[in-house]
């Protein structure tokens, strides 16, 4: 059994790296994570200012130029990527966790549990996302609860709060099919507990699709965070994120286009890489795929 699982994992990994661009994307993302983890070796600090040296063009001294306070944008982007990636990762994780629970309960038990949970899911799917994100961001930050004053946390929570419906629907769909499969009915007949069946027998079979949809969610979470920060409702200064650096650049688009360009480029590259990884995963888990090469 163990041997089989290993070979299964190996097969998927091999299939994944057959998708060349997905392989490259993994590399790009790894470099990014590595670089942001090592941000402290950068010659500048993200907060050190040199006001007389503001709006420097990108050059050897400052690779991505400097901002209005004379801070090194490259360094700020490195530190910013920590926050942006954390927001993307944690909000995806949270949303999938909620989604899996709702979807699994709904799909496994069906009946009135399914009806109620799916009504709630539908209600959430009807919400005009961006409007509610803005309202929620304001609402949570106004609660004057100390831990909600951490804008990073608020952004993670609200993104998850408005995206768990997608994995929930996905997982429910998978459970509806899988619970009728023979090995499940057999286990049930043998008296396996519900929890055990859900966690040990059905869920492992859903991992592929969940991973694929997780990449999509993470890509969109990163874009959402940057959009919220751009509108001023996301992560607050002095914490740098790609979106918040971009938002301070709004007034300087002509004077210092690089302040807007590089954070945007980082978002673009990251999201692109994540999308390719998702594509690779889809291929890896999809039994039909035949590669041309």
């Amino acid at each position: 059994m163990i041997e089989r699982e290993q070979s299964m994992g190996w097969l998927i990994t091999r299939r994944f790296f057959k998708h060349k661009l997905a392989g490259i994307a993994i590399g790009v993302l790894a470099i990014l994570v590595f670089a942001s983890a090592l941000a402290f070796v950068a010659p500048y600090s993200p907060t050190d200012q040199e006001p007389t040296n503001s709006f420097q063009k990108p050059g050897i001294q400052h690779w991505f130029g400097t901002d209005e306070l004379g801070r090194d944008i490259f360094t700020r982007i490195l530190y910013g990527s920590r926050v942006s990636l954390t927001v993307g990762l944690l909000s995806t994780f949270l949303s999938i966790a909620v989604g899996v629970i709702v979807g699994a309960l709904s799909g496994y038990f069906g009946g009135w549990i399914d009806t109620i949970l799916m009504r709630i899911t539908d209600a959430f799917l009807t919400l005009p996302t961006i409007f509610v994100l803005i309202l929620l961001a304001g609402f949570l930050r106004e609660q004057q609860v100390p831990w909600l004053q951490n804008s990073v946390l608020v952004v993670i929570i609200i993104i998850a709060a408005l995206s768990w419906m997608w994995p929930a629907r996905l997982v429910r769909g998978l459970f509806l099919v899988l619970r009728e499969r023979e090995f499940i009915t057999a286990t049930r007949a043998l008296g396996g507990s519900h929890l055990r069946i859900i966690v040990q027998h059905i869920l492992p079979n859903c991992i592929g699709p969940i991973l694929v949809s997780g990449t999509l969610q993470m890509a969109s979470a990163i874009i959402t965070e940057s959009g919220l920060s751009y509108l001023g409702f996301g992560v607050q200064p002095p914490t740098p994120t790609w979106g918040s650096i971009l938002s301070t650049a709004q007034n300087q688009v002509f004077r210092a286009p690089w302040i807007a360009f590089y954070p945007g480029l980082m978002i673009f590259i990251t999201v692109m890489a994540i999308n390719y990884i998702g594509d690779g995963l889809r291929d890896a888990f999809d039994p039909y795929v035949i590669h041309a090469d």
């Binding site: 661009l21 890509a219 751009y230 971009l246 807007a260 945007g264 673009f268």
Partner: peptide, 15 residues
């Protein structure tokens, strides 16, 4: 097309 569409999908609208 995959590349072009991924580019389209990865650019933030406001940017």
């Amino acid at each position: 097309m995959t590349t072009v569409t991924f580019i389209g999908q990865s650019i933030p609208v406001y940017w």
